[in-house]
Design a binder for these strands. Structure first.
Lengths: 139, 139
DNA sequence: TCGAACTGTGTCACTTAACGTTACAGTAGA
DNA sequence: TCTACTGTAACGTTAAGTGACACAGTTCGA
């Protein structure tokens, strides 16, 4: 899985934890330990899915566009990371004669897709608020 | 997820599909489309878990060490790829003052571990025989 | 007992994906 | 119009994934 999911969740939790739910890409990036451009790219995707609101210009930045209690990590995964469970490298060769060699790709593809579905179903049970609570009570 | 899981499954399905369930690393690698050394490295792990038997020397090679109908992909995942669902990159910093920044790592860690468990539970429902059947009936 | 055909394993090189950096156009408020 | 933001693209750098090679150890048959 790629780490954009982590960044997306961290950003939303960070915003949810702030009194005014508002921050610039620079302060979010500082909290996450990455660079503002990377944050902006991911926030831009979140905005297109109404999970954050953005405001350009002076005094602008990012604000929460969703209710932490109603936003699941499953939704965030689908928006940010769908398809990333499957490895890039594939075994076999569709044009080969051997049925294993030629058919394994589509079979494994299905298996990875189903596996991803089971991850998403699990992540749908966890909300941003749940994560925030865990962060607040972590020892 | 890393592609060693794919190679392990492909190898076992390939062996299961052969009449004598026996092959050299070279012929397995050719079927998978990778190099023999990589196959040997992964098969070595499978051998340590009794999923294949290996024989060195002249006339040696790999044979199935398990029953395809009783061997689940979940077991293979645990043996080969446990822990690879989580991305390498982590956000936050355990030494920071902000509770989000300092605690997000352990919280996300738990989430990835649980997500991996749900993948494993799903993969436990699929056997090598199931994969072989799908390969044989794939259009 | 020697040679051929294997596995086991380590090392290094190469390729590709992940991540960081910089730059700059566009926007909005002071 | 200046300053502080986002949006996005391009490029550089680092780390992971994969391939290639080497060689010691093993087994069998001639």
């Amino acid at each position: 899985m790629n780490s954009e999911f982590t960044i997306a969740v961290h950003s939303l939790v960070f915003l949810a934890n702030l009194p005014d739910h508002r921050a610039s890409s620079e302060s979010i990036a500082y909290n996450i330990c990455t660079n503002p451009a990377r944050v902006r790219k991911i926030m831009s995707t979140l905005r297109k899915n109404n999970l954050v609101r953005t405001k350009e210009g002076l005094g602008g930045g990012y604000t929460l566009g969703c209710s932490p209690a109603e936003t699941s990590l499953g939704l965030i995964y689908r928006v940010i990371s769908a398809g990333t469970l499957k490895p890039h490298w594939c075994s076999g060769d569709p044009d080969a004669d051997c049925i294993v060699k030629s058919n394994i790709q589509t079979v494994m593809d299905d298996i990875f897709t189903e596996s991803e579905q089971s991850v998403i179903r699990h992540l749908e049970k966890i909300t941003i608020e749940d994560v925030l609570k865990k962060v607040r009570t972590a020892h």
